[in-house]
Amino acid sequence: MAKFNTIMFEMPKKLYANELIEKLTDQRREFNNNRGAGQVNNLPTPEYIFNREKLTTITFEGLDFIIKDRRVIGIKGLTLSEKALQQITDKLLFLDKVQFDYCEKSNREYLSGNADLQNIRNIDRWFFTSLKILTTTLNDIAAFTKKANTTVMVEANLANMRKPNIDTFGEKPVDQAIVQLAK
């Protein structure tokens, strides 16, 4: 909190979605490439990208998503309705939860007494796929918010996006099953 002329306001934390996604991907890949007997202590830490309580600005493709209390409360420079913001929140937080859950699930499998490496590979594949889908969804949101100049157009584009944009990512059954497995 900062105090200016006796008015208290929260200073937002600024994060970059690309860097967070890259960090999560790199951590998991590095762990997988170096896994061995002593590596269980160095499991990648699950981390949410958008699911944040404190005021946070998350930048992606020139858009500043303003997050507070686990909701997208705005995109800097755009006037969006509550409905549009709720649609964006639903899509991003769902995908964020999926990637977080797959990271946790993979870690739990490693820590179990009899880890199934094929199951771990599949879970990791779903983790990486969820991050790719999150990136694709963010790219789609960035593309139509830059083109659309009215809230109505943004809402229409959001409504036309599949939830959570899994069908446009790929045709593999694993990509389409990601939502079902995450539940």
Rank of each mutant, 00 (worst) to 15 (best):
F127G: 02
K13T: 00
L131V: 08
F60E: 07
C103F: 03
L181M: 10
A177R: 13
T129L: 13
V152S: 12
K105G: 06
T59Q: 15
K97H: 05
T56V: 00
N119C: 00
D124H: 09
Q176F: 05
I7G: 02
Y102Q: 04
T151L: 14
T135K: 10
K97R: 14
A17P: 00
K14W: 13
Q118K: 15
K23E: 13
N160W: 10
R52E: 07
V152T: 08
L78W: 15
A159I: 06
T145R: 05
D140M: 02
Y16E: 13
N33C: 11
K146Y: 09
K163P: 05
I58H: 01
A142P: 04
F31W: 13
D140P: 02
A148I: 05
D101W: 15
T57I: 07
K132Q: 11
R28Q: 14
L93V: 04
K3R: 11
I7H: 03
Q180F: 11
D26Q: 13
I21Q: 03
F100T: 06
N32A: 10
T168K: 12
F9R: 14
T150W: 15
F169C: 00
G36P: 02
L78D: 14
K3T: 05
N157I: 03
F100C: 08
E82K: 09
G38V: 06
L85E: 01
N107Q: 11
W126C: 10
L85I: 00
E104P: 01
I133M: 10
N51G: 07
R71W: 12
N33A: 11
C103I: 02
A159C: 04
T150Q: 15
K83P: 04
A143Y: 12
E104V: 03
S130K: 02
K163G: 07
N107I: 10
K97D: 03
I88V: 01
T25L: 15
K163A: 08
G77Q: 06
N41C: 04
E61F: 03
L43W: 11
G74E: 09
A84Q: 15
V98Q: 02
L131T: 06
A177K: 13
K54A: 08
G36Y: 14
T59K: 15
K76V: 05
E22F: 09
Y48P: 00
K132F: 11
E82D: 09
R125H: 13
Q27R: 12
D140Y: 04
N122R: 14
E53T: 06
K132I: 05
K91W: 10
S106F: 01
M8Y: 10
D64W: 04
N165V: 02
K105T: 08
S106N: 02
R162C: 04
I133W: 05
E171N: 06
Y102K: 05
A177L: 12
